[in-house]
Nucleic acid binder design. Structure first.
Lengths: 194, 194
DNA sequence: CCTACCGATCGGTAGG
DNA sequence: CCTACCGATCGGTAGG
């Protein structure tokens, strides 16, 4: 597998940031995992926060692209199917790289200044897409009555938490997980009376 | 309100640990919030980790007590009602002290040695209670067919995440939140066909 | 609860 | 990518 040194650094950092957290991971921990000296890292990156940003930004882009694809794929279908497509798209990103997804979820707040603020805005925009899906579906009578903001947070926090515990070498396949979580998500917004 | 100095330290630490994380919070940050010198903290605590342990242990006890009460309160009722009681009990603890609940959820892994291991065991035991509730309800045909382990994780991660975003001074009352989340949780395990 | 101080470690730079 | 090194900050102790 061809992989630039820069990308190796980000991959190793994702693992460590997920396991110990950004603040508790030293640049020397990252270097040690690559068998180089701590100071040598700076031949490839300009700062520790730069590495965090690269991981978080890439994950954010992946989530946005997955939501785009899910919307395109399910356009015109009933709300429960559009919801399932969103959930499966989101979990696809999480299971493809749980380390980065976890850092995106839990460590982005260690970004400073503009990076912090733009990431907050992108997260809000992403959550708003799910909120709108729910609001539209509820208004159309295709989903159970629910506070869209609360329901979106409920679902998104459950989905993001998968990044914390999912292991790529585990027994649960991404597809099986997506189906099971899709069932739970869709049912949580399905009126039992129908 | 009477409050020991020790308890003030834990309360201030809960806030800071939730906002910035345990590793990114210095003992001098805690001291500054109390208008004392960093070294003066050690007249009241023996280590930074001691403070973390006190917060996490107290929260764990509160969750365990709430689950006990929920089980007693809902014993003999159908599974959906027992599930709702569990959810409302858990969220009661979260909304009563979101700072501590968040530290319990996100920072406990910074504990070392025995404390880490016993807390992991207690968390597992707690999750197992919810898992058993779901498994029993599913077997009895009172809940939709679902993988109990996966469903318990789905719900518990959504519930714990409330501690991250809930503000006691917000517009959402604990009771309204518990009802809305109870609806979502119960529906997620309710077969739409009934 | 304070002042004074400790060794260790932090992220990062200089200069090859 | 290395060695050598920087100032700042870390959690914590001594002795009042």
């Amino acid at each position: 597998m061809v992989e630039t040194r820069r990308r190796q650094i980000e991959d190793v950092a994702s693992e460590l940031f997920r396991e110990r957290g950004y603040a508790a991971t030293g640049v020397r921990d990252i270097a040690r995992a690559l068998d180089i000296q701590g100071a040598s890292l700076y031949a490839h990156v300009t700062s520790k926060e730069d590495v965090l940003w690269a991981i978080v930004d890439r994950a954010a882009c992946a989530f946005e692209a997955a939501a785009d694809a899910a919307e395109r794929r399910s356009a015109g279908q009933p709300a429960p199917d559009r919801l399932r497509a969103f959930v499966e798209g989101h979990l696809g990103v999480v299971t493809a790289d749980p380390e980065s997804a976890s850092v995106f979820d839990r460590e982005w707040r260690h970004l400073a200044g503009t990076r912090h603020d733009t990431m907050l805005a992108r997260r809000d925009a992403y959550e708003r897409r799910l909120r709108r899906l729910i609001a539209t579906g509820t208004a159309a009578g295709e989903l159970a009555p629910a506070d869209p903001a609360l329901a979106a947070t409920f679902l998104l926090t459950a989905l993001n938490a998968v990044a914390t515990w999912y292991r790529s070498d585990g027994t649960r396949s991404p597809a099986a997980l997506a189906t099971a979580y899709g069932d739970l998500a869709v049912r949580s917004l399905t009126d039992p009376g129908r």
